[in-house]
Design a protein around this nucleic acid. Structure first.
Lengths: 353, 353
DNA sequence: CAGGTTTGCTAAATCGGATTAGCAGTGCGA
DNA sequence: TCGCACTGCTAATCCGATTTAGCAAACCTG
């Protein structure tokens, strides 16, 4: 059925040279090691004719490099949003001829250990440890065995590993500015977290903390005080709905900063219940740029999580890690922040109305 | 930094035996080959102490099996829905100690070729070729090089490869029955495709064709004729909105069968525009069980695509392929249909009102 | 023309296991 | 006591590449 793979020995035989010579030529070291033009051509021709492709498993055994990187996440592969993260990583890796192993830990430490072990057993050249939503994570000891990068996560304890995360602070600033630019000064409510620096959902979400910092900073600079803040235990539509409904029973806001698009979906529903129009009566800005953001009516203005770029960046950083001497791991790993672009759509208008 | 991996030789030395003996014991063939209890214990103890783990790259080179399978899709990794497919495959693979390579082709045949090549270069034990939405695909020749399974796809030309797809025909039946069971007999409109067998969007979508078959079959058996059908060029919210709006301008339906949840989202919006309530005025059933289905208000009754199960099933089938003699590839590959369960929620009511 | 360089290529070792062939030592029957 | 079977383990080979060490022939050089 499958006619045995062509090996280097086959190529060498056809070209009438030793495997050594064939290897030299094909790895581009022929010139350097004074292989004649004639022989070089013969080897190249034979390899092309036989469609020779080196067996990476063999190369892996000999050289220790498998042109493979491991992508381990808590559950990123499943979430649509974060699927783009994999896609970015996949493409960046492919551009360098690397493949990706993926694995999901489901947040289970034992599973994580097993998975990392399985990857090391397969001699991966590096590992990306990713989180579904931006947060701090405990770095397993076995991560020291190979170059590694934290994606969408920060180390809970000091660690030499570099991390790649979205620039949530700047995102907070951008969202707040979007409202200020539209002329909003009053009746700005935060849905999902706030108004105080400490008013964030439990769970160590970096997004909540940093978005809030950015928002508060920009509002403060403009001399604007948020009219209110409403922590949601989880950023799901039902909590956004409940929080907004509660708010509307007491007062009429002019603008909402929702902490993510699902919360905003709930907010939309509450506003609709109270007969308020977006953006004529109430402007809404949000975060994530989840697919529903552009399905909602009116389409939601939101600061996008750059999942694709995060994935790419993680691979880039991983490659510089791989290229580095593994000895000079002094101090803390660098934190790379990827910009979060705002998607201006239809949910923000001037409060003039 | 990383203290060289423990090898079989290390274990053998500590146990005071030859690598051969150690290998025999650790591969469980010690009993069979008459290794003494004493030696067996020593080897096991040494292996445990050193935390020995076989280098799979080495095993791969020697035995040709890498405990790895390749998962190649057009763009499945990115779509949230289908991320579950990967998850299912991942878990099923992990249960057998296998890892997954993943790759996306973006529908580019050249990329697909390269990707399959890269996987074969890494000696994968089998390959899953997946499609994002159920459809017929052209099977690349190189698929013959290893055991393989088509996931969410059927071969365009006759092929010995088995395929795993959702049971869309039965799904169509289930959706239609849901309406019939609620008492609907008239004013049932199809949004997305139909009413005729041929009225399907271009693109070779299996879902459109088969869902329609199931729907028509059940309705016909009940002596019910669909009041109308509305093909959408693409199953996106805006088309669902447009089609439903056009419908509502002419008549008032009692029930809608939307061909997927995004179309249903658009339909909801159109119904809302016309002041019609779901399900009091109009019942809605749909397909896919996209996350938005449970975010919509009222929550959408929909026939779920069993992505997770599809992924698991694909791996199961792949393993039987791997276990099979590769010679007896007579005839066509078997088609495995995975049931699509209905999620009964709030969008269907009796037409009595 | 002996001795040293270059040139151009190859033999052999290596990576870490699996596997095949076979080697000592013991027991047993004739 | 010789031959044979059995027990319990090991040497050697192989998988498919890379890499180190080195060899033969041609080429200089004084």
């Amino acid at each position: 059925m499958s006619p045995r793979r062509v090996t280097l020995a086959d190529v060498a035989k056809i070209a009438g040279v030793s495997p050594t010579t064939a290897s030299l030529v094909l790895s581009g070291r022929g010139r350097e090691l004074r292989i004649s033009q004639d022989v070089e051509q013969r080897v190249l021709k034979a390899a092309a004719e036989l469609q020779y492709r080196p067996n990476i498993v063999s190369v892996g055994l000999r050289t220790g490099t498998t042109r493979t990187i491991g992508f381990v996440s808590d559950t990123v592969a499943t979430s649509r949003l974060a699927g783009d993260m994999i896609k970015g990583a996949l493409e960046a890796a492919r551009e360098r001829g690397f493949m990706l192993f993926i694995g999901e830990t489901e947040g289970d430490a034992e599973l994580e250990r097993l998975l990392l072990q399985a990857m090391h057993d397969r001699q991966v050249d590096g590992i990306i440890l990713a989180a579904m939503y931006t947060r701090t994570i405990r770095v397993p000891k076995s991560m020291a065995a190979a170059p590694a990068v934290l994606l969408n996560a920060l180390p809970k304890q000091p660690s030499p590993l570099p991390s790649v995360i979205p620039d949530e602070i700047e995102a907070g600033r951008v969202a707040a500015r979007a409202l200020l630019d539209a002329g909003h000064r009053e009746g700005i409510h935060l849905i999902g977290a706030g108004p105080g620096r400490r008013n964030v959902p439990a769970g160590g979400s970096v997004a909540a903390v940093e978005r809030l910092i950015g928002i508060r900073e920009v509002l403060a600079e403009a001399g604007v005080k948020p009219a209110g803040g409403h922590v949601c235990p989880d950023w799901q539509p039902e909590y956004g709905l409940a929080a907004t409904r509660a708010l509307l029973q007491k007062e009429r806001p002019r603008a909402l900063i929702c902490f993510n698009d699902r919360v905003a979906l709930g907010a939309y529903q509450a506003l609709d219940d109270f007969g308020l129009k977006v953006p004529a009566d109430v402007s809404v800005v949000s975060f994530d740029d989840h697919p529903i953001a552009s399905w909602m009516r009116p389409q939601l203005t939101t600061v996008a999580l750059p999942h694709y770029e995060l994935g790419r960046k993680a691979v880039d950083v991983l490659f510089t890690e791989i290229g580095r001497d593994r000895e000079d791991d002094g101090g803390e790993g660098e934190v790379h922040r990827v910009p979060m672009p705002i998607r201006l759509r239809e949910s923000v208008a001037s409060p003039a109305a």
